[in-house]
Simulated scan of single mutants.
Amino acid sequence: MLPLPALLDDAAVGIASGGLLYTASITTAALVALLAPTPARRRDARKVLALLLRRSVTENPNPGKPTQQ
């Protein structure tokens, strides 16, 4: 059985690796969206970027009033 500190170190390395991979993916998609030679490629890269940056949004039943959290 591994001691707790070793497990925490492995978890931290995994989380950091995932974060770096996600950041690299977003950076690549953003650069392609800006620098692609054709409008179709830029449009596709923007769609990919929108998917990567999607946030969960709760709908406001009263659009005139702010939601309380």
Rank of each mutant, 00 (worst) to 15 (best):
residue 1 M to E: 12
residue 1 M to D: 13
residue 1 M to L: 10
residue 3 P to M: 07
residue 3 P to V: 06
residue 3 P to E: 15
residue 4 L to W: 07
residue 4 L to N: 15
residue 4 L to C: 11
residue 5 P to G: 09
residue 5 P to S: 13
residue 6 A to Y: 05
residue 6 A to G: 01
residue 6 A to D: 08
residue 7 L to V: 07
residue 7 L to K: 04
residue 9 D to C: 10
residue 9 D to V: 13
residue 11 A to E: 13
residue 11 A to T: 07
residue 11 A to N: 05
residue 11 A to L: 12
residue 11 A to Q: 10
residue 12 A to F: 06
residue 12 A to H: 05
residue 13 V to M: 08
residue 13 V to P: 02
residue 13 V to Q: 14
residue 13 V to H: 10
residue 14 G to K: 10
residue 14 G to V: 11
residue 15 I to R: 04
residue 15 I to N: 05
residue 15 I to E: 12
residue 16 A to F: 03
residue 16 A to S: 12
residue 16 A to P: 04
residue 17 S to Q: 11
residue 17 S to R: 07
residue 17 S to E: 10
residue 18 G to P: 04
residue 18 G to M: 12
residue 18 G to F: 04
residue 19 G to V: 05
residue 19 G to E: 06
residue 19 G to R: 08
residue 21 L to D: 12
residue 23 T to G: 14
residue 23 T to Y: 10
residue 24 A to I: 08
residue 25 S to P: 04
residue 25 S to V: 14
residue 25 S to T: 15
residue 25 S to G: 14
residue 26 I to R: 12
residue 26 I to Q: 10
residue 27 T to Q: 06
residue 28 T to D: 15
residue 29 A to E: 11
residue 29 A to C: 12
residue 29 A to K: 07
residue 29 A to F: 03
residue 30 A to M: 08
residue 30 A to P: 03
residue 30 A to T: 04
residue 31 L to D: 13
residue 31 L to Y: 10
residue 31 L to C: 08
residue 32 V to I: 10
residue 33 A to L: 03
residue 33 A to M: 02
residue 33 A to N: 02
residue 34 L to K: 14
residue 34 L to A: 15
residue 35 L to T: 12
residue 36 A to K: 01
residue 37 P to C: 02
residue 37 P to Y: 08
residue 38 T to M: 02
residue 39 P to W: 01
residue 41 R to M: 11
residue 41 R to A: 11
residue 41 R to H: 06
residue 42 R to K: 11
residue 42 R to T: 12
residue 42 R to W: 07
residue 43 R to I: 00
residue 43 R to T: 02
residue 43 R to F: 13
residue 43 R to C: 05
residue 44 D to W: 03
residue 45 A to S: 10
residue 45 A to K: 02
residue 45 A to F: 03
residue 46 R to H: 00
residue 46 R to G: 01
residue 46 R to L: 09
residue 47 K to M: 11
residue 48 V to I: 05
residue 49 L to I: 00
residue 49 L to R: 01
residue 49 L to E: 01
residue 50 A to V: 01
residue 51 L to P: 00
residue 51 L to Y: 00
residue 51 L to M: 03
residue 51 L to W: 01
residue 51 L to A: 08
residue 52 L to P: 00
residue 53 L to S: 06
residue 53 L to R: 00
residue 56 S to A: 09
residue 56 S to E: 12
residue 57 V to C: 05
residue 57 V to I: 11
residue 57 V to M: 06
residue 58 T to F: 00
residue 58 T to A: 09
residue 59 E to H: 08
residue 59 E to A: 09
residue 59 E to Y: 11
residue 60 N to W: 03
residue 61 P to D: 05
residue 61 P to R: 02
residue 62 N to V: 05
residue 63 P to D: 02
residue 63 P to R: 00
residue 63 P to G: 05
residue 64 G to P: 00
residue 65 K to W: 12
residue 65 K to V: 15
residue 65 K to L: 15
residue 66 P to F: 01
residue 67 T to C: 04
residue 67 T to D: 05
residue 68 Q to F: 14
